[in-house]
């Protein structure tokens, strides 16, 4: 028997994609996907955000790398492989990263060093990082406020995050130095909010 409220692999992935596309086209713009996450099976060993993004983006054609400290990472890898057909792979080969708990600073460093950034001829052969943070907000009310500028943004845009180490921003700007090579970020929080930071977005820390 199928659950009518279960995450729908045709319609819910499409809805999520439309909101993700909107967030990617308007860096820092927060979209709410909480309604879609309600369909994620409770037994799922990864976060609902990771599950839903994985169902939307992954299939046999691409590979992924899953990172988590707290949850059982092996189970999550297996669950994503089974439900999407995608392959879990070495970190420096992955097309998509799912980072479900915040790593220590030196781990952030090793993640960012192994992330693929594409080449000048094929900048699209780069990885996309889906990063789980505690909270996202469009106001200046969380620990990591960011001023965003670049394509998709009319002037500047404010985004702030809780549970996101500033080290991510430092290493991101280092890896994204030589545009068009670089990696793109999708942020998602515990409340089912998403935002994106494509490689074109320049980030200033508020108060710098």
């Amino acid at each position: 028997m199928t659950n009518a409220n279960a995450f729908h692999h045709v319609h819910d992935t499409r809805k999520l994609y439309r909101r993700l596309l909107d967030s990617m086209a308007r860096p820092g713009k927060i979209n709410d996907i909480a309604d879609l996450l309600r369909g994620v099976p409770e037994t799922c060993p990864c976060s609902p955000g990771t599950y839903a993004l994985a169902q939307t983006l992954l299939d046999q054609q691409v590979s992924f790398y899953y990172y988590s400290q707290e949850l059982n990472a092996d189970d999550a890898e297996r669950a994503i492989e089974w439900t999407t057909g995608s392959r879990h792979t070495a970190s420096d080969a992955a097309d998509y990263w799912f980072i479900d708990t915040s790593p220590e600073i030196d781990e952030i460093d090793s993640i960012m060093q192994s992330v693929r950034i594409g080449t000048l001829t094929e900048p699209e052969k780069s990885a996309t990082i889906a990063l789980h943070v505690r909270k996202l907000s469009g106001a200046d009310d969380l620990t990591l406020p960011m001023i965003l500028r670049g394509p998709g943004i009319n002037g500047w845009h404010l985004l702030s995050a809780e549970g996101m180490n500033i080290e991510w921003l430092r290493l991101r700007s280092e890896r994204n130095r030589d545009y068009p090579t670089g990696c793109d970020f999708v942020l998602f929080d515990d409340d089912g909010q998403i935002a994106a930071l494509p490689r074109t977005t320049r980030i200033e820390r508020r108060g710098f």
Partner: peptide, 8 residues
């Protein structure tokens, strides 16, 4: 498409 948006 997501990649295309990230590299105008």
């Amino acid at each position: 498409t997501l990649k295309a948006v990230a590299i105008p």
